[in-house]
Design a protein around this nucleic acid. Structure first.
Lengths: 341, 341
DNA sequence: CTGTTAGCGCATTCAG
DNA sequence: CTGAATGCGCTAACAG
């Protein structure tokens, strides 16, 4: 039967009293700022330990004007977020460097307008020193709203509106997509289809651009009936492939803009009685864990997702520390050869 | 080229000045507390809008001694969390009611000792009014640590150490598992295997207990060689089934303690050349979306996951509001008949 | 209905 | 090296 502590969180005041020093000294000892005699140090530490003292972060935040917390924000509905292993890996990378600096990382999903506003207010209210923004669609103004209030924002994925001032990290999407398509060409494919990502995001546009570029380089003319739009979900890949196959039965290669859609497409290909890679060679994008697990194993374009997360966090912390605006960070991709192409 | 706002977030003071009223009045208008003349109201609102005023939450928190934020904490590593659709659905349910009350929900994953301590300090530091704790293993003392500091905690899943005071919500795991096993018996299975969840969690113990009870009720003796331990991951289900089949080839029914393991087990069954449900009937637990999507579709025990999340949040908010300690909430389960059994 | 007053708990000057 | 004093921005009494 523990007593009700809710009315009596020990303050710095009482710690100092018990240690026989002033608040100021106690504060210095506990935050490691300034210097203090080992005598005072021991006394304060002992008192804090004994009382189970925990600093009141709101009070500290009020005076330091920092919160020591940053957010990892996903502008996507839960379903999408949890269905794609891309996100957790990114989160993990970011978490690593943030925790390393002793900051709190808070994770939030903002999908609708109300939650969008809540986030901005929350951050502007002083609870967030910075924001990492993932999966931004179209012309969402969240970054601007945040930056306008002095909150540094780092995006993962090139923002679709070109503003030189915006910080972001990204993979070489166009280069990766081009490599994937070249591989298909090298394998002898002639009717190479593509399932694109959401075209309201740079990642969708860039990967399609890579596909077109590689086709052009190979002297294959671009055929619109070989391109279908997806939204990065498995289901969209399956649906798109079904349509593609119906419209153009001679398809012998496929570039899917991410692994999840590639898997969906492979289901559709199988259903149609075709084999992979015998009848249709397939290349995905991301190299999520799923790619290696599926049968047949998926040939795909690897992007170093965790590194992307680390870079994003690093970039944000730098900006919070005030080291000016950082240049975009672009990480390279590489083909991972497995069995689907 | 927007000006640098970072040094000048407008305070209540300047809003009040611009509106020609006192801080107190401005505060009342903006927080909707107390009454104020429509005249003052208009003036304050206009001023706030014009200045882009956002309250400093740290300052408010310091005086109200509340943070208006609660956490959804998962004591599990990222991989596990993101692999199981159970969690996002739960989160969604919780998010609904939390957002409805205008509170912030922060999501955190605490897997190791450091992050564990960080969370407790963060909460004790006044940044959290309450905590929802998911997937608590063994004798983790996080709930006690938190409650000892006056932070209300609600668990999902019965805590494994029996303390009458702890608040939790849970499904009728034993009843559900018993129903599943009964179904297998009714289908004519005689050698019914079980793949359990982690036995350091009540959910693991309870579902196994349900299995044993149903077996006993049917007059079938419990055979240890028909039971293998899993950890709720797909891989563990696959591995367990392989071992089970090797040790006891005559198995004709399987109860898996969750859907993910059931799917893994079905892979192993397929690999062994057996068919589902022809040779081995299978029943899972949860009814996550995966259950309906897989081929053959999985017969399983449905628990209303989103409802569980809502109940959990509701329970927490009640406790924060001080309406005493709430009774455990137990939601009922039901069999969903598909094709695997 | 409104203004005045008084802290919330802490980090940080500035003297000593 | 240490203590006393100050104020961060806000809400909650309390008077008017």
């Amino acid at each position: 039967m523990s007593g009700d502590m809710s009315r009596s969180a020990p303050t710095l005041e009482v710690v100092a009293a018990l240690a026989g020093v002033s608040r100021a000294t106690a504060s210095r000892v506990l935050s490691g700022t300034g210097r203090s005699s080992s005598q005072a140090q021991e006394a304060v530490l002992a008192a804090a330990e004994k009382l189970g003292y925990v600093p009141n972060l709101a009070a500290r935040s009020l005076v330091t004007r920092r919160s020591d917390a940053v957010a990892f924000v996903v502008a996507e509905d839960e379903r999408t977020f949890f269905a794609d292993p891309f996100f957790p890996t990114l989160l993990q990378g970011a978490q690593e460097v943030v925790a390393d600096r002793g900051l709190q990382l808070m994770f939030m999903i903002v999908r609708d307008e109300p939650s969008h506003r809540r986030l901005v207010n929350y951050a502007a209210g002083g609870h967030l020193d910075g924001v990492m923004l993932v999966s931004l669609h179209g012309t969402d103004t969240m970054p601007q709203d945040l930056e306008a209030r002095g909150i540094p924002v780092v995006l993962v994925g090139r923002p679709i509106v070109d503003e030189p001032l915006r910080s972001y990290v990204d993979a070489d999407n166009q280069g990766g997509a081009a490599s994937a398509t070249e591989l298909l060409v090298a394998r002898g494919c002639r009717r190479i289809a593509a399932i694109t990502g959401p075209m309201d995001m740079a990642v969708g546009q860039d990967r399609q651009a890579g596909y077109r570029r590689a086709l052009a380089d190979a002297g294959i003319s671009y055929d619109e009936s070989l391109v279908a739009a997806g939204d990065f979900s498995r289901e969209s890949g399956e649906r798109a492939m079904r349509e593609l196959l119906a419209a153009e039965p001679a398809i012998d290669g496929l570039f899917a803009a991410n692994d999840l859609m590639a898997l969906g497409a492979m289901s559709a290909i199988g259903e149609s009685g075709r084999s992979v890679p015998g009848d249709v060679a397939v290349v995905g994008f991301d190299d999520t864990p799923l790619a290696a697990q599926t049968r047949p194993a998926l040939t795909t374009v690897r992007q170093p997702i965790a590194e992307l997360g680390r870079a994003m966090a690093q970039c944000l912390l730098d900006r919070i520390a005030g080291s000016g605006r950082s240049e975009p960070v672009i990480v390279q991709t590489e083909i991972v050869h497995r069995t689907t192409a």
